Simulated assay, not measured.
Amino acid sequence: MKNISKYEAINFLNNRDAIFLDVRSYSEFEYGHIPNAISIPIDELNEKIDLLEPYKNENIVIYCSSGSRSFTASSFLSRNGFRYIYNLTGGISPLQNYLVR
């Protein structure tokens, strides 16, 4: 697991070189999210981890509102064998210009 800045996340986004995982609530996701992001709220991650299995060896950028839930999710996925996990520190707020609603 690696913590990344908004600039590194934008690089992944621009290069389409990562899967984005939104671990906020469904209502937060609907309010605005990274295009093509997968939405799995942190409290459902354990039971829905199989949905991420196809991406086990791909870059996964995990984000939430502040970076706290994404850190927890990043640690969880790393412990479960996901190899390329990136936690967006500081949350999604700095990426407002990239969100779809």
Rank of each mutant, 00 (worst) to 15 (best):
N14P: 04
S75H: 13
S66Q: 06
L99H: 03
N87C: 09
G81E: 08
G81F: 08
K2A: 08
A73H: 00
I49S: 08
F12G: 00
S75I: 15
S70P: 01
S75D: 11
I60V: 12
S66G: 14
L77Y: 06
L51A: 09
Y63P: 02
I49D: 06
L52G: 08
N80M: 09
I10P: 00
F29L: 04
T89W: 10
H33M: 11
P94L: 05
N59D: 06
K48T: 10
S70A: 08
F76N: 08
F71Q: 13
G90R: 03
S39K: 09
E28H: 04
F12K: 02
G81Q: 08
S25L: 05
S78G: 11
A18E: 02
F29G: 04
P54G: 11
E44Y: 14
R69D: 01
L13N: 02
H33P: 07
F12P: 00
P41Q: 07
I19T: 08
P41A: 08
A18L: 10
Y86L: 05
N59K: 10
S65E: 12
I19K: 02
R79C: 13
F82Q: 06
E53Y: 14
N80I: 09
S70N: 04
S39H: 06
G91N: 05
Y55T: 05
L99S: 10
E30N: 15
I92G: 01
D22M: 05
L77F: 07
L99I: 09
I19S: 02
M1Y: 12
Y98R: 12
I19C: 01
Y86E: 04
N59E: 01
I62W: 00
I4K: 01
G81Y: 11
S27K: 11
Y63M: 07
F76V: 12
I4M: 01
Y84N: 14
S39E: 09
L13G: 02
V23Q: 06
N57K: 13
